[in-house]
Computed example of a mutant assay.
Amino acid sequence: MGRDILKYGVIAGLVVAAGMWGTLLAFGKEMPHGMLGMALGYLTMLVALSAVAMGIKHHRDVDRGGVIRFWPAFGMGLAISFVASVFYVLAWEVAQATVVGDFASHYAASVIENAKANGADAAALATLTAQMEAFKIQYANPLFRLPMTFVEIFPVGVLVSLVSALVLRNPRALPAR
């Protein structure tokens, strides 16, 4: 089972890293923030984390004779998601060090500009600017940034693991051929 976890976790990690790098190469430092950026990011995560279902199914069909219980399937899904999440964090760190540069400043400027465009008053803009300055300081700290990046993808992996375990515990769901 450990081999399958590593294999499918690495596959998911490489897919999510490739999606991240594809977005970076397409948009450069002007990465899309807001709804478009979130949609692209989470779509890539869902595609990559489909490896969770493939890994559980492979383990069920090949190693377990076509039967797997919920908790072992869920645990395997979480482990695959963990490996993929580590790849995601590493890919983001490399991207930030090479292509993205000062993400926190670009993000803060985008948030403030969006607030201005939506008609925020001077007091709200002052408060938001102070919050964004605090965010930039926090984001510079790896002990803040690394877990924050991990938490972007891992909850998606938890949901995919849950759904996959619920579906694949039934041996008639996607039966082995």
Rank of each mutant, 00 (worst) to 15 (best):
G2F: 11
R3Q: 13
R3D: 15
R3S: 14
Y8Q: 09
A12C: 09
A12E: 07
G13E: 06
L14N: 05
V16P: 00
G19E: 04
L24Y: 01
L24V: 10
L25D: 00
A26G: 10
G28K: 08
K29C: 01
M31P: 00
P32C: 09
M35N: 07
L36D: 01
G37V: 01
G37T: 03
L40E: 01
G41L: 10
T44G: 15
M45Y: 12
L46I: 11
L46Y: 07
V47S: 03
A48I: 11
L49A: 06
A51F: 12
A51N: 03
A53T: 06
H58T: 11
H59C: 13
D63R: 15
D63V: 14
R64E: 03
G65W: 13
M76G: 10
G77F: 05
I80L: 15
F82M: 15
V83M: 04
F87L: 13
F87D: 04
L90P: 05
A91P: 14
A91Y: 10
W92S: 04
V94W: 03
A95M: 07
A95E: 03
G101F: 06
F103K: 00
F103D: 02
Y107L: 10
Y107D: 02
Y107E: 13
A108R: 00
S110C: 02
V111H: 01
I112L: 14
A115I: 09
G119Q: 01
A120S: 15
A124E: 07
A124Y: 03
L125N: 06
T127N: 07
L128P: 01
Q131T: 02
K136M: 09
R145N: 00
R145K: 12
L146Y: 09
P147Q: 04
T149A: 06
I153H: 03
G157R: 04
G157W: 02
L159M: 14
V160L: 12
L162N: 02
S164T: 08
S164E: 08
A165Q: 07
V167W: 14
N170F: 13
N170C: 08
N170S: 15
R177G: 07
R177N: 12
